[in-house]
Write a protein that binds this DNA or RNA. Structure first.
Lengths: 345, 345
DNA sequence: CTGTTAGCGCTTTCAG
DNA sequence: CTGAAAGCGCTAACAG
């Protein structure tokens, strides 16, 4: 079965990959007919189809999407740029993206910025070079160049997680400011008055800051303010949350509730309480953000706000696939949030 | 500056993308010269370079990797197939892959199987169609078709996580059987005799089963056996671990140690103990697998085995990039594991 | 229902 | 150091 045709090296210097022409020759039809059958378009006589399909099977033909994309100027790649995979939140978004893409045959090409917009800028170039059908990116914190390139690309651009700014084309997410505000209102309604805050790096996590601003606004409207805060100079983590709460409580013992920048930090806070013999809620209320599984599995389920990360990714993809052309003006889809009562506040 | 050349629609029906020809025309050189300068190869006069670079900047030229790949038969895409993103373990591997790829300009195109080898088979086809330079995939549980396609593709194939089987080309990971065996030996050495096991779905997680087999082997060698086990019929999770440990303890109260299929499950076990007033280690020892951050952040850090997931992804990529051709015979790289003492066993 | 023709945008020879 | 010619494998746009 080893063909001894003299063709040139393939990518890996192996069997010179089977092409449409090979299949066409074997099935005694033209290339375009094979192409149509493989792509399942246009009218084709049943007999022809059988013959071609048999030839495809016999040769083990694998369509070359690179050639196809070049010829048709329509790719089935989607560029995806996320800040990090260490944070499960972005993994959830990516899951949603993949789930939305799965039935369509589109594939995500991904890039991770590590919260560095310079890296993001480079990634944009390297992903755009693959002529993706659309680009999905997290947040609004882009360099001017990034923004311009995305806008000029002409393809659909979805900016995820956040809807507190004007998107280039499409924003899908929730208002973090509103989520923070509702958190504040909720806690005030439950009688808490002496607020503390445990946060992480605001430079890289603009959304955490927006949430906290929302909380502060609610506090201000109620004539309250934040008594003490501890900010960790790095990414959020359980360890950081645990350490920061310990620090915070060392400074001020008279808090009745601590708001955390997210669930990772808050779970750390719960761990500190457990280790220090502080009863969550009775001695000190704790409140997170995201609604992660781990928080809900705690002996005392975490009080928090559920952000719908999977949905954000899924909806973005659904919209992009159903509306492959940009609309006249930027659109925003609000995926909302829900307060999760829990048992820590 | 809006050119009114009459070219055809681009992917998204926008400005007919700038091509090499456009840049060449502007710089008054041939296309190939621009190509060389953009790719930074071959000898080029400095003056020419300046002129071309200026033209590139002026036009905002973005190289088209699709055309480049077709012409050169060498892509800078790497196909990556993982079972899930819900499990942080695979997110870690993906991080390692991305970290290894980052400086090279290669980009990962990903697919998620949800532990379904039929899905995996489809993904193989759809990724191979992009003529990736290599393919990275998790484990050895592939359909015959998948295996054959990968083998025949001629490109480098890395099978990650596991080294307990013969790879198609390259395996990078650890021996889960050995990890389990060492776990068993370690626990026996610490004086534990009455073993219980809390696990999750073995069908989808062959590695968990291998680990447990390793533990059982160590037990058998010491004349011991497992007294009771509880298996969750689904993916591992903190919730599942918590519930299963509760079940297990209902059945048999006389265990002195429980081995969990992984850290997610074990953390759930710790949570159950906290809620039920069982002191980890003093009343009941708990042991996990993976060495996740969450386990180490617990009030009682989890005793477990550290698998080096990030490293597995990183090393696979490093090897693939440094050795783009398959070696004569399959190779295996052992990334090892370390027992983490912790405070729960 | 099937085929012919003409590229897609780039890179590989091979010549100058 | 630079360029001309040819073609990667496929598909759009017409025919027939």
């Amino acid at each position: 079965m080893e063909a001894d045709r003299t063709k040139k090296r393939s990518v890996a210097g192996r069997h010179p990959a089977v092409t449409l022409a090979d299949v066409a020759r074997l099935a005694k039809v033209s290339e375009i007919t094979v192409s149509r059958i493989v792509r399942d378009i246009g009218p084709v006589a049943d007999g022809t189809r059988q013959r071609v399909l048999a030839a495809v099977a016999e040769t083990g033909y694998v369509p070359n999407r690179v050639a196809g994309t070049l010829a048709s100027a329509t790719s089935n790649l989607i560029g995806v740029i996320i800040p990090s995979l260490s944070n499960i939140v972005f993994a959830d978004v990516l899951r949603g993206i993949d789930a939305g893409l799965e039935p369509s045959g589109f594939r995500p090409v991904i890039g991770i910025t590590n919260y560095d917009s310079t890296v993001e800028e480079k990634l944009i170039g390297s992903l755009l070079a693959w002529k993706p059908a659309a680009m999905i990116i997290v947040g609004f914190d882009h360099t001017a160049i990034t923004r311009r390139r995305l806008a000029q690309s002409g393809i659909r651009i979805a900016e995820l997680m956040d809807i507190d700014s004007e998107p280039i084309d499409l924003a899908v997410g929730l208002s973090h400011r509103a989520a923070g505000y509702e958190t504040g209102r909720h806690l005030i309604a439950r009688g808490y008055r002496r607020f503390g805050y445990v946060g992480h790096d605001w430079e890289t996590d603009r959304r955490a800051r927006l949430r906290w601003e929302g909380v502060l606004q609610a506090l201000a409207e109620a004539g309250l303010s934040c008594i003490a805060q501890a900010l960790f100079a790095g990414a959020s983590s359980t360890q950081a949350g645990r350490a920061m709460l310990a620090d915070l409580l060392q400074e001020s013992q008279d808090l009745d509730v601590v708001v955390f920048s997210n669930d990772d930090m808050a779970v750390g806070g719960v761990f500190h309480c457990m280790a220090a013999g502080i009863a969550p809620k009775r001695d000190l209320a704790l409140f997170g953000f995201n609604g992660l599984d781990i928080g809900q599995a705690l002996p005392t389920p975490l009080s928090t706000v559920r952000s719908n990360r999977f949905l954000i990714g899924k909806i973005a993809v659904d919209r992009i696939l159903s509306q492959p052309e940009r609309a006249g003006n930027p659109q925003t889809i609000n995926t909302g949030f829900e307060i999760v009562e829990g048992e820590t506040a």
